[in-house]
Amino acid sequence: MIDFVHVVGMVFIGGGVAFDLFGCLGLVRLPDVYNRLQAATKCVTLGTCSVLLGTCLIVGPSGGGWRALLCILFVVLTAPVSAHAIARGAHRAGIRLWEGSVSDAYSEDRDALNAKQQARNDNAPATPQTETRT
């Protein structure tokens, strides 16, 4: 049967799929790594969460529904962290910003930051860099 909850779930799934497509389009169109990372991370995270929410609504409160909610939690917690890690790794690997960029405060401060981190690593070698709650 197709009822009201199904219609709401299908609206969520349609919107999510559209945002996934826009995110991947941004991945192709935008000029440098950081912009691509922004567009793709935001749009694809929200799009996939919306698809999962629609699945949860349609499947209902059975095993699949709870698992879809848990999957939303994991995706929302992990996607920004991996975006942050990739952005920092790309910047430290020396990948320049697009030539139309306005300011790059990070490369101005990076020598001081590296020295500070070196000192911290020497003092306490077991400091975790990022902390997640998975």
């Binding site: 996934d20 991945l27 995270t45 698809v51 999962l52």
Partner: peptide, 9 residues
């Protein structure tokens, strides 16, 4: 990375 999230969808 983004492809992995698409596969979840």
């Amino acid at each position: 990375d983004i492809f992995g999230v698409l596969i979840v969808g």
